[in-house]
Amino acid sequence: MEDKLKAIVERIEKSKLSEEEKNELYATISEGLQLTVWPVLLKYMPKDQLDYLAEDPKGRVTVESYAKLIEDTIKDGEALKEIDGLMKSVLNEVDTALTEEGV
């Protein structure tokens, strides 16, 4: 990921795009990366716990119950690995798009 991100930014910096366009690209990239996180967490999130809390958030969401929800989501580390993989894929998509656009 480090190399991919660095290469993409260097590529954009060297391009003839305007500063505004560059910033838009960076914003899009960063948001694309961010968008990978919560959906993956949800994939691994115990649905019964989420449903239970969502049915009555004000009455049921406590720091403790929320912590347990997240703890159970990430405890085996699989979610972290999957997010890492998705982030790499997002950067690959960016790289391909830039190539197609001649950047």
Binding site: S30, Q34, V37, W38, L41, V63, E64, A67, I70, E71
Partner: peptide, 24 residues
């Protein structure tokens, strides 16, 4: 804070106050 944290965020997002931290 970020909820995504480049998205490392959110993973321990719920590690709340002391009791929750204890739990997690």
């Amino acid at each position: 804070a970020t909820g995504a944290g480049l998205a490392l965020g959110g993973w321990v997002a719920a590690v709340g106050p002391e009791k929750a931290v204890g739990a997690v």
